[in-house]
Amino acid sequence: MAVLQVASDLIQTTIVFATALVFAMLGGLISERSGVVNIALEGMMMVGAFTAAIVTYFLETNAGLGGSAPWIGFVCAIAAGAVFALPHAAASVTFRADQVVSGVALNLLAAGATIYLCKMLLNGAAQTPTLKHVFSKWAVPALSDIPYLGPALFVAYPTSYIAFLLVAVMAFVLYKTPAGLRLRAVGEHPKAADSVAINVYRVRYAAVMISGALAAMGGATIALTTTSNFSHNTISGQGFIALAALIFGKWRPVAGMFAALFFGIASALKSVFQVYGITNYIPVDFIYMFPYILTVLVLAGFVGRAVAPGAVGKPYRKGER
């Protein structure tokens, strides 16, 4: 039964890794589906992780809060992510800036600002102390008692449940509601959308800000479940793996979720491989590279074909032919 135990552990770790990716992937999805490229997912995750950790820290040390502190931190992270995304929306939509450059700037801004604020608020410390209160795993009654499968799937952090629930919500909103139709129309053919009185600018602003909120949730979940603090390497590439998952899932929520899970397995396998000495045969560097190589292959059409939303990256100018 040792094999089953390993498999069960592996699934559990996979879900922990994938949760953050799912949040950020959804963030990228809503922005790019509205026609705004978002390579700033990484920076938005940093802002989320930082806000969640610092708010939780001050609430538990100065306000004496206990188990509610990480929840308030999580909510603050969502708000911070949305606000942080606002300049990207302004640059991309109102000022028709290059969306990639704006994203690059935001990533750099997040990396600098979070550590700067950290040092300013914590007397020069470049990272928060280890948080005493973080999210603990919830067990779904009855289902979690199933041997092996129960602990694997039904004992998880609350943020995991939220993330997978949001995938369903996103899929429903995107394909079954007028709001989703408008979003897709704006991303595929803004002029056509404009001609039926959809406010392209407003849709894109909203999409980019929700994108920031979602990506920040991804960052917050890492700080509040995996690392229990914030430091310069709390977020190190997860935003770009989420971007890879978005593309690998061809800009669709459910497929993107599976891509995130798939990349989550790759990360989880890394720890399992190290424990069992398999890294002697498959170098750990290759496991790190794997999501990125796969994404390039998918884009190149060697493995399926990924086609981006029609108007992605193109600023919209009302009334222009």
Partner: peptide, 20 residues
């Protein structure tokens, strides 16, 4: 904190990009 300089450079990139 020296990270401030990254904030400054990020702002410069941002404003060059959003030339408008």
């Amino acid at each position: 904190p020296e990270e401030l300089i990254h904030v400054v450079i990020a702002l410069v990139i941002f404003f060059v990009a959003a030339g408008g």
